[in-house]
Amino acid sequence: MSNLQTETALNIEPIKTKSDHRFLQFWRLFRRKKPAVISFYFVLFLFIMAIIGPFVTPFDAAKPDYNSVLETPSASHWFGTDEYGRDILSRIIAGARISLSVSVSAVTLGAIVGSILGLISGFFGKWVDKLIMRICDVLFAFPELILAIGIVAILGPGLNNVIIAVAFFSVPSFARIVRGATLEVKEMLFVEAEESLGASRLRIMFKHVFPETLPTIIVYYTMNVGTAILAAASLSFLGLGAEPSSPDWGAMLSVSRDYIGTAFHLVFFPGLVIFLTVLAFNLLGDGLREMLDPKMKD
């Protein structure tokens, strides 16, 4: 049998089908998971709010209006007003920027450091692995929020320190999860094939092993943003994060807890937004995990 004969059918130019594009393929499957899709749009909406929020708020989020203090929700103030007469809806919209930027930058920082550590740990193994994993074990031994409170207590209150604290406690979990994925990918045949081609270890690690661990990282990242929002809000609630006057969701909750018996909406709406945001990130992460984890092969 000659080679020409066997592959003639393949030498016709293939018709470009939609399935050629991995992203479109992915999106078509993803669209079927309703909770994840709704969460995705909600998260997208939050990000848009975080960017354009301050320009579209119906009222100035920082300006007090003493003629309308503690108003219940109405046609002009949809979510009511707080103890200084500030519109709660406007403050929530303005606060999206703070909450998202704090949580996203904290998780990004944690993910970068954690993933690199996990990759090194899993790829090189031996004492490097043991050292990194034992340090992670020590960090795991602290309850996350207590650890964060400790760090903020050392560095002093403020949003930047909240970012560092939240990033710090997400490092070990990223490291551990990426290490696991690396251990799995490292044993795959194509990695050995690269080695036999003469590729250096660094090249194999970053060009071939790392991309295979990306789905795991993406899923974990999404889920962790939810946790980080909650953690940042908790720190602000405890007075360790955003300044009490700023429209941070956690700080809003903290300040208005005195009015919980008299003006229920002061606590309800910021709490609701935090709840929905965390839920959305978690559902989105769940959806992504279902898509990516059982290996989106063929």
């Binding site: 045949l189 194509f190 094939a193 036999s196 081609l197 003469g198 590729a199 071939h208």
Partner: peptide, 29 residues
Amino acid sequence: MQMVFQDPYASLSPRMKIKDILREPLDIH
């Protein structure tokens, strides 16, 4: 000296195009 592996399903990186898979050895050497 180069190797050809048993399992052609596992020996090619799943995230790389054929073009890049074949260019890889040239990029290295």
